[in-house]
Nucleic acid binder design. Structure first.
Lengths: 245, 245
DNA sequence: CAGTGGTCTAGACCACTGT
DNA sequence: CAGTGGTCTAGACCACTGC
């Protein structure tokens, strides 16, 4: 019954060791993401602990956003929630009060030797090639974003061939279906700069106007960097909110 | 033994009703903030539930940041953690690589009839007066912030008399000691604008340079708005980060 | 040493989901 | 209806804190 892996520190509380076990299973892809993970009863038997301990381990993972429970159906591996993304904070309505349809267009695709900061963000050796996408996005409010996206070329090889029109508005499901690469989390960084002439033109603002720069590193469930993205949008339509407690 | 208050919906799980009870006690100030709240055993008896239920209620409150446990000492009401504040994201080091000593100076104190948006943020009728403070802050990195602070004048009456030099760098402990007003949480909003001449001069940047505006509403433990604050700092030294999962 | 929270167990019963 | 997670109980033992 006792199917513990090696290496977990026996001094840690049981529920924490169990938590590590479950995270390993998720990272390794051992449990398919569209089916429930083993039931509480199954885990209880497999690891020879009490239900309460299994519940506590799962509780912490639910809390950290890795799992999601659904009464009567089971416990599932959660997809990251990009509602928390900084992109959400471009204003919901444009100057005329209209909400426009979000849209996305790939302008260019090139193979590129990554510059040092990009290679570092992707944890790639600089010799490795990246697939670079230039993209123009329209958000719900009509704001325009100019995006540069770098992907490790070997991992995303299939994307080299596919026609640009077939890239959808949502890239992550596309990565998953075409390349089997699943995004499990991401880290975003916000800074502000002033628009140079080219950016200003693309965003429909004046040169020198403030621009919000959002950088994102997207990671797999095993924490491998999968995508590095740098997006620029007009700062005038940006409004971000935090709760402190 | 059964000391439940009225009004809690009997259809809710016990631990959620207990949670509400505890939140009420905190909001009402019934439990002093510097002493532990009643022990698990005491709550078990007082509300006639099992320890596990008390633990679960407290767990959720710890998780939401209202309480804080300390093994062997007890469970305490937590103070809000302003490390989560957006202010933390002005760069840690200035252009010369020095870290300077944070500082703060009150430039002016006036009684003001609040403009409509400020009255709304403080949930005050526009007839109510506010005490307005103008303040210049230096952060660890040497960035300068220009701050405007509005307080409900009646609630903060003692501050009308005190000499400006006696206002410390940290205002919240000062509010508490002088006026008995404790801050329990806050909401911050970030936007970007360009510096007008006056702001540019105060911040030591050029007119038209981008400026980060942070608005903050600070609330008491009972969710009453206590302070509205609007701060402006140079956008060039600002860098904010979020995790998505 | 007494008192506190932390971990772990064992099991009852309820509520929801899919068939 | 069978199977899943959700709530609640009761109690043992451990680890830390302050006296």
């Amino acid at each position: 019954m006792n199917q513990w892996k090696q290496g977990s520190d026996a001094r840690l509380p049981l529920y924490q060791r169990l938590r590590e076990e479950i995270m390993d299973r998720i990272a390794s892809g051992e449990w398919p993401p569209d089916k429930p993970i083993p039931t509480e009863a199954a885990l209880t038997q497999r690891y020879d602990v009490a239900v309460g301990t299994v519940r506590k381990a799962i509780d912490t993972l639910v809390h950290d956003g890795l799992l999601e429970r659904s009464q009567g159906r089971g416990t599932f591996i959660r997809r990251p929630d990009f509602d928390a993304s900084l992109f959400r904070f471009f204003r919901q309505v444009d100057a005329a009060g209209h909400a426009r349809v979000p849209d996305s267009r790939i302008l260019a695709r090139t193979l590129e030797q990554p510059a040092e900061p990009i290679a570092r963000a992707l944890a790639l050796p600089v010799e490795e090639q990246t697939l670079k996408l230039d993209r123009l996005r329209t958000l719900e409010d009509g704001s325009v974003l100019k995006e540069e996206i770098w992907l490790p070329a070997t991992r995303f090889a299939p994307l080299k061939e596919i026609e640009l029109e077939r890239f959808g508005t949502l890239l992550y499901p596309f990565y998953e279906s075409q390349c089997g690469q699943r995004v499990g989390s991401a880290r975003e960084t916000l800074t502000v700069e002033t628009a140079d002439q080219e950016t200003a033109q693309a965003l429909g603002i004046a040169t020198g106007d403030p621009v919000v720069v959002i950088e994102r590193v997207a990671l797999g469930y095993d924490r491998t960097p999968l995508e590095y993205r740098r997006s620029r949008g007009p700062a005038a339509t940006f409004r971000y909110q935090v709760e402190i407690s």
